[in-house]
């Protein structure tokens, strides 16, 4: 819910700065390691956008893959969890380099 309120805030600021009055589509980027339940976010989206410039808008959620960097192999691998070992050498944990995003990526507006 707080994340969606953060989104509304960003939307309102941009509406003023860039002069739009209506948001048709919201594109969020929620990484697979961000610890955010995407379905809960969809539910909260409808609740917070009611009566806002994004009422009735479509929500698109991109979910970037988790990525981890192994200092031994000097290689990046895709991972499903924070504690997945390096697929090459088995080292745990990898330094997380992707998949923790929680961003408003773009808005389709008019």
């Amino acid at each position: 819910m707080s994340l969606m309120e953060g989104m509304l805030h960003i939307m309102d600021e941009n509406a003023k700065a860039q002069g739009f009055g209506r948001v048709r589509t919201v594109i969020l980027e929620i990484g697979k390691l961000a610890g955010v339940e995407v379905e809960a976010l969809r539910f909260a989206f409808e609740a917070v956008t009611e009566g806002s410039i994004a009422e009735g808008a479509t929500l698109e959620i991109e979910e970037p893959q988790g990525l981890g960097w192994c200092v031994e192999c000097e290689r990046e691998s895709s991972i499903e969890t924070r504690y997945d070992p390096c697929p090459l050498c088995g080292k745990v944990p990898l330094a997380i380099t992707g998949g923790t995003e929680m961003r408003v990526k773009a808005l389709d507006v008019e």
């Binding site: 994340l3 969020l28 408003v104 990526k105 773009a106 507006v109 008019e110």
Partner: peptide, 16 residues
């Protein structure tokens, strides 16, 4: 009309 795509790239937690 005025319909357009606006790139935002801002963190949902930035206010916090």
């Amino acid at each position: 009309g005025q319909r357009r795509m606006v790139q935002i790239e801002r963190n949902l937690l930035e206010k916090n």
